[in-house]
Design a protein around this nucleic acid. Sequence first.
DNA 1: TAGGCCATCTGGTCCT
DNA 2: AGGACCAGATGGCCTA
Length: 269
Amino acid sequence: MKSFDCESSSEGDEPTMHAIARGAVEPPQWLRAGGPNWGWQAAGGPSSSHPAASSALDPAGFPQFPANAEENQQVPGRRTPLSAVGLSGFYFQGGQSNPNIVGHGPPSDENNPDPGCSGQSARAQESRLQNPQNPGSSKGKNRQGKTVRLNINARERRRMHDLNDALDELRGVIPYAHSPSVRKLSKIATLLLAKNYILMQANALEEMKRIIGYLQGTAAGAVGAGIVAPPAFDLQGFPAAAKFLQQQSLQPDGARGREQGSGGPGAAV
DNA sequence: TAGGCCATCTGGTCCT
DNA sequence: AGGACCAGATGGCCTA
């Protein structure tokens, strides 16, 4: 598919997507970036060479969690269902004047797409609408063949609509800038972003488990007394914990206690 | 104007 | 046989 050949995009929010979706497969980066940034951080991988990579670090582009479906529908570029614009049955209205477009019984709107609204090619429309000038004996068969073809087309259209609906739902649950002024994520962007979001969540979960295990492993009351990692304890795999402990060690005792209660950087985990 | 994205049509393949 | 799935082709829309 050509869409997958050239992923660079000219769309407004696409740059954010690229840095996130293609490069950020090393989630720990988001924890190392100072502050409770639960956002997408460019991982400095291959994607960092992408001209748009830096924009992914822009907090302004940071996720505003799940917008509702209504908001999604306001996003420019949103596909408009034929039925939603009152174009159901368009084909059959035309088909009545064109003997080649006939159906068996009352047609469903799915069988009657709107040639003016759809993006179908003129070639496709022409081949479907043209009169083949076949002999009368094959006319019935031809009509039946057209009906079969229309049914197949309708099913395929419905299938693609279902796929798009699923993609819309996916857009609704992954963090990115949901806004009427921001164009919705492309399909490929949605999939890549979702993939990295899952990886990030899994990574966060792993780290949280390690932190909990570590805290449970330390002597009771260690936090109140001032947390100090055991000499042999390797904090390399605990970026957030390391940062937390470092801050703890730099703060006076009083401030330390307050910080623990008010949810400091460590609380972001 | 070129490039990206998309919807649709279409024919092929596989499965039930 | 009919339906689901897939990929290629095509043209429209939008943006830089």
